[in-house]
């Protein structure tokens, strides 16, 4: 059993809805409504779900870019959910984030060298000019860019190359955890596979752990060890990827997998087409969040919310069918 890096316990994020002249809080958008999971050192946890399911909010809370409304986030045993900004700042170099859009994550006015060197400056690393330059060159080589490119600006690079720059910057301070939020979603398929392969290589080389957030099931399956499926702010299933993809237990996971188009011309198993849209997280249904679209729902589902529990070893699901 390897060491635990991150333990998330019952985190919630409610965004207030303000309306009227006095901007009174008239309700809450329950973006994340009690999510718990663990991440071991060197592990990749994929989080999948459709828009509005709270996967990005979860990622942002782990980075403490967003303050959780409730719950705790233990990073190597320390609760970062309640940590003061000062002590959090020292820890921040251990967890880094890579976003979807490499165009907006890089300051257009800075050179690549300055962008990658910025983490050293922010974290007051006592490095000389030439040491920083050396580090930048090493990082550029690690992510497959030429060291000569370090004096150029982000707009001179393609989308895939920019994402490499973002990854180089995230790696600068030897982080332990990288949260990648839709990191390859904006890229063309041929570039997407380059970045995925790079991330897999870096993980081995730097002994990284990833939380890989994406709506793309095949990408998540490719890169993850374990996968969590979110729906309307809840984790509905969490399992090692083989188990999850070979035998999905939650009806939502089942529908999601059957809806994903596969690049193959084969007769597929019967397709489950869900009716309707995802309900609004401002007004989530009572009981199980999925019961309004679930083909297998029964009376109890509308009454109470099922808890995530282990039904097969290591395979957790939140559904009354099990």
């Amino acid at each position: 059993m390897s060491e635990m890096l991150l333990e998330v316990k019952g985190i919630k994020k409610y965004f207030p809805i303000k309306s009227g002249f006095l901007r009174r809080t008239t309700g809450h958008v329950k973006a994340v409504d009690g999510v718990s999971f663990q991440l071991k050192k060197g592990e990749t946890l994929g989080i999948v779900g459709e828009s509005g399911c709270g996967k990005s909010t979860t990622g942002r809370m782990i980075m403490r870019v967003l303050e959780p409304t409730e719950g705790s986030i233990l990073f190597e045993g320390q609760d970062i959910a309640k940590m003061s900004p000062g002590s959090l700042r020292k820890l921040r170099k251990d967890f880094q984030m890579v976003f979807q859009d490499p165009y907006s994550s890089l300051n257009q006015k800075m050179t690549v060298r300055d962008l990658i060197a910025e983490p050293f400056r922010i974290h007051n690393q006592p490095l000389s000019h030439s040491e920083i330059d050396g580090a930048v060159c090493r990082l550029l080589e690690t992510v497959g860019l030429r060291t000569g490119d370090r004096f150029r600006h982000p707009h001179e690079f393609s989308g895939g190359q920019r994402q490499r720059i973002v990854i180089a910057r995230a790696l600068a301070l030897n982080p332990k955890l990288i949260v990648a939020d839709e990191a390859v979603s904006a890229l063309d398929v041929s570039i997407q596979s380059q970045i995925l392969n790079l991330m897999v290589d870096l993980k081995r080389e730097y002994n990284l752990s990833y939380i890989f957030i994406s709506h793309n099931l095949a990408v998540v399956k490719h890169i993850s060890d374990r996968v969590g499926v979110m729906y309307l702010g809840n984790m509905v299933e969490l399992a090692p990827k083989q188990g999850l993809f070979a035998q999905p237990l939650h009806p939502y996971t089942e529908a999601l997998l059957s809806a994903a188009p596969e690049p193959k011309r084969i007769e597929r198993r019967e397709r489950i087409i869900l009716q309707g849209d995802v309900p609004s997280p401002a007004n989530p249904p009572h009981g199980c969040p999925f019961h309004t679209r679930c083909p297998k729902a029964f009376d109890r589902c509308a009454m109470e919310r099922p808890a995530l529990k282990e039904v097969v070893p290591d395979h957790q699901v939140a559904c009354f069918l099990y």
Partner: peptide, 24 residues
């Protein structure tokens, strides 16, 4: 061929994805 080899699939496990070097 390269395009098909570079996409991850739900039905089969690819250890390493093929990646087309360079850009368009």
């Amino acid at each position: 061929q390269a395009l098909l080899a570079s996409i991850p699939s739900l039905e089969e496990d690819k250890e390493v994805l093929y990646s087309i070097p360079g850009t368009v």
